[in-house]
Design a protein around this nucleic acid. Structure first.
Lengths: 196, 196
DNA sequence: CCTACCGATCGGTAGG
DNA sequence: CCTACCGATCGGTAGG
């Protein structure tokens, strides 16, 4: 009895974040009320505040958790000695896999971050920009090595990231979607767009 | 005196829609209040209701105006006798041009349509789906004529549309962006991803 | 985790 | 186009 309570308490905050991500995705951050969130969890709204500090803090937690995951993987890839095309492929695959594994969180981080308050908003945008720049220099390396076509590296990266971020909208078609086919298709189409 | 008033009255609703699109983009539909919109227009909130029926109606007008523009262009292209690749290029260029010409409206139609109320939500999604299907059959034709690589037509279309819809986020980098370079880059990278 | 409750703000109406 | 105002709902606190 006590053990179950302890286990649940330990992850209570995570359960809240998880459910919040699902609701924020469905309805949007601003349009989701703390009462709706509470109801979805089977508790009263004021009880939420034993686990989280504010509605904003929930959004912050979701967005920065996702950002951390992507940054962590990026750093790991950058430290490897693979070719630029392989690095890029690994990053593309990670985007797709993460999106399929945590669609709600990734969606919120991609589309509701605008609702972050300062200084979190600025920090988030800064991280995003540095992520994009890291990918751009990867593309630049590929161009120098004559492996990629000669194109604007930043444009190339933004195009790929846009395509990947839009993936969440594919949910609608998900009955027809096989995960492996999806991943391989995207890798092919997106890399084909820049490879020589 | 009377003439100016008449002219202004005629376009008053459009001015409201225009400003609303800008605010909805900046802050999100749900997080934008009618009082903020009124203040941005230099009037009091209740005065808005002489020109629009409700907050929802503003969103509906923006979303369906944009949808109509895209559908109209699509139909024009489909009636032409060009090759699939040319048709697709024309559609890609239209997306980019429309987005650059009306960034606020296109952003709202792409990202705030979730806040539409029924039956508008269902209708909007239906139009979207039929738009995607029309593009998919275009890709299919290209594959049959051996002009496109053999890939899943729907996936190919969703990837391209995702990339195009994400374009709005490029605003952030706009000081470095030249319109023609942007358009040509995207056409190249996106078509290269599917052409044989 | 709950009940009771608060000030603020929301979309919108009445009436002129 | 404005003033005056409404009921509903919001995020959050007090206190237990």
């Amino acid at each position: 009895m006590a053990r179950i309570a302890t286990i649940n308490n330990g992850s209570r905050r995570e359960v809240i974040l998880k459910k919040a991500a699902a609701l924020f995705r469905q309805t949007g951050f601003a349009a989701t009320s703390m009462r709706e969130l509470a109801e979805a969890l089977g508790i009263e709204a004021p009880s939420l505040y034993n686990h989280i500090g504010s509605k904003s803090e929930i959004l912050q937690a979701i967005c920065f958790n996702v950002a951390n995951e992507f940054n962590h993987h990026l750093n790991k890839v950058l430290q490897s000695t693979e070719k630029p095309a392989s690095k890029l492929e690994s990053i593309i695959r990670f985007h797709i896999q993460t999106m399929l594994a945590s669609p709600d969180e990734v969606y919120v981080a991609n589309h509701e971050w605008k609702q972050l308050q300062e200084p979190f908003l600025s920090n988030f945008l800064l991280q995003r920009k540095s992520y994009e720049n890291a990918l751009a220099s990867l593309v630049e390396q590929g161009i120098e090595k004559k492996m990629f076509r000669k194109l604007n590296p930043l444009f190339a990266v933004l195009t790929i990231l846009s395509a990947l971020r839009g993936l969440e909208a594919w949910q609608r078609h998900k009955k027809n979607i096989n995960k492996d086919e999806l991943e391989n298709h995207l890798v092919t189409q997106l890399l084909q767009g820049i490879i020589k």
